[in-house]
């Protein structure tokens, strides 16, 4: 069992490694979590997630751009891969469940992937349907996974028109997840017109805006 001081050192190490996109060091500290008896959930929340929060704010401030975010994401996922299998089942059950995807007609998924990363860093369970996702599939997955949140993305002005259609379908099935939308042509006003519960202008805002919109 690691001392308090060592536990802090490991958390800080994970935080710094994610922020500086140092995948090797991130893996080293993730292994230390398991080897030295630190709670993996704590390591994710107090190390990796805080690191990703910082990464999101650096993106907001235009100090980081997508290349840096993707490198941070590689460091994050390398650590998550080590830590996740060791999270207790009862802890997993209490996590927010999210279904995410880029809507039918649109193959652009870089933004969606970055939002997914932010959600996973927040400790949420994300079911990623990928890109060019048939509209009915979103409804089926919400029903199947009992998702708390559905996050819909579109980059093209034509494919964004599929978003209100999905939202109508979700409501027609009497499903009530928190509906988040995002993507270059969308705005907060359009999100509202479409019947979404929330909108995030970029991946850095995604977690915060989703929490704000939660039902």
């Amino acid at each position: 069992m690691a001392s308090n001081e060592r536990t802090q050192e490991i958390m800080r190490g994970l935080y710094d490694a994610v922020v500086t996109f140092d995948e090797e060091t991130c893996v080293k500290f993730a292994k230390a979590v398991l080897e030295e008896g630190v709670n993996p959930s704590d390591a994710i929340i107090k190390g990796l997630a805080l690191g990703m929060e910082k990464v999101g704010s650096l993106y907001e401030k235009q100090e980081y751009f997508v290349p840096e975010l993707l490198m941070c994401s590689d460091a994050l996922y390398a650590a998550l891969e080590i830590l996740k299998p060791h999270i207790k089942v009862e802890e997993q059950a209490t996590k927010l469940k999210v279904v995410i995807g880029t809507v039918e007609g649109d193959i652009h998924d870089i933004g969606k992937n970055l939002v997914k990363m932010m959600y996973e860093a927040a400790g949420w369970t994300v079911n990623d349907l990928g890109r060019d996702v048939k509209l009915d599939r979103f409804v089926e997955e919400i029903e199947r996974t009992k998702a708390d949140v559905i996050a819909l993305s579109a980059l093209m002005t034509t494919s964004m028109l599929a978003i209100p259609v999905v939202i109508k379908k979700i409501k027609a099935h009497n499903l009530n997840p928190t509906i988040m939308v995002g993507g270059a042509p969308l705005t907060r006003d359009i999100a509202k017109q479409y019947g979404a519960d929330g909108y995030a202008e970029n991946c850095g805002m995604a977690v915060q805006e989703t929490i704000k919109a939660l039902k």
């Binding site: 007609g105 193959i107 093209m156």
Partner: peptide
């Protein structure tokens, strides 16, 4: 682009 929501050529 052939689908209802497709706008331009794309590649998998």
């Amino acid at each position: 682009p052939t689908g209802d929501w497709e706008q331009a050529p794309a590649y998998e």
